[in-house]
Design a protein around this nucleic acid. Structure first.
Lengths: 187, 187
DNA sequence: TGCAAGAGTTACCGATCGGTACACTTTATG
DNA sequence: CATAAAGTGTACCGATCGGTAACTCTTGCA
């Protein structure tokens, strides 16, 4: 009963979409790369769009789990964890196949605010914001919502800049800025 | 001798690509939207990619001209202009057809660092960085390169967040952060 | 007036797109 | 062992993809 093949499909489709983009990755390429027949794919997902939505759900789960865990491993105070977010990002930027944020890409290719893919990407960012805001509260910062939004702006900016310039430098630039902003919200 | 038709094509293609994305906009759609025959297009541009590169050149020129001019109109000191960048961004975010940054989109759809479209997008960001760095110098800020990079991270973050959340709020969040960062670099 | 260059029209190319029909084989379970 | 669910292979669909050939129409200028 365990949906092994389905999970395998979603996972491999994730890699293909991340590497090639959504429109540029055809279902036939997915067949070639996953080794799963097109007939099977269309038994699990009615359309390509449905598959993409499943891919984004998996990505959301994995990315948030990874980031939150890494932040906790790198620091043990809420305040330290907020700053450690940028060290975690630096690790990500340095990975060989780094190609930016999948949700930014998704919302770039499916721009209509009403499109489910765009909406799901926005959900991901909202969940991140909630987590960071909670952390800012526990760190005792003044106006936790505002500082959380600012840190996330630095995060998104670093993600796209690291991708465009293919360098991980933006992580430390963002970290330096984050430290100053947190400092100013500390009393 | 004036290349009227060619310019018209590039300009209308810019709108179409910005609205629909690059892969999602076919040459036939361009024919329908511009009223220019496909034969004519292919006399001016050898490939779709060449057309996209011309579109990005136009976008770069227009966007930087607009941003620099707006910053100068909104403030008359270098320091004020740096901060005014985020007010200019807010105006942009509030425009009806706002769909994020064309160069981020382009580098999302053409991810390979070696791809000309990716490279040209990176050029745009580099030119922005040079301008902002020079402004930071004239503002007398310590470490102008670092503060410029940080401000641009806030800018990129605000651009994608405004697009994803279809709200212009990130502009003021970024502005508040920018003011603090500039403050800390002032002595 | 003649004529070349630019633009348009129409029809077409092979390849690929997302998606389906159908018959076949594998696999897990009662 | 039977059976049904799950997966595969192959061939196909109409539409669209980026790009081209051949021919006509317009326009500016010597």
């Amino acid at each position: 009963m365990r949906p092994t093949k389905r999970d395998e499909l979603v996972q491999k489709a994730l890699q293909a979409f991340y590497r090639n983009g959504f429109h540029a990755t055809g279902m036939d390429m997915l067949v070639a790369e996953t080794g799963i027949s097109k007939t099977s794919m269309y038994k699990h997902f009615r359309t390509k769009e449905d598959l993409i939505l499943a891919v984004l759900r998996l990505r959301d789960e994995r990315f948030r789990n990874w980031l939150y865990r890494r932040m906790e491993e790198l620091a043990d105070t809420p305040r330290g964890q907020l700053i450690a977010m940028f060290d975690a990002l630096e690790e990500w930027f340095g990975e060989p196949g780094y190609k930016g944020c999948m949700f930014i890409k998704a919302s770039s290719e499916y721009q209509d605010a009403s499109h489910p893919i765009h909406g799901q990407s926005a959900d991901h960012k909202r969940m991140l914001e909630r987590h960071i805001t909670a952390l800012a509260e526990r760190a005792g910062l003044s106006d936790p919502g505002a500082i959380a939004r600012q840190l996330l702006l630095l995060k998104e900016g670093a993600i796209v800049t690291a991708h465009l310039g293919h360098t991980k430098d933006p992580a430390q630039d963002a970290k330096a800025a984050a430290i100053q902003l947190i400092e100013d919200h500390s009393r």
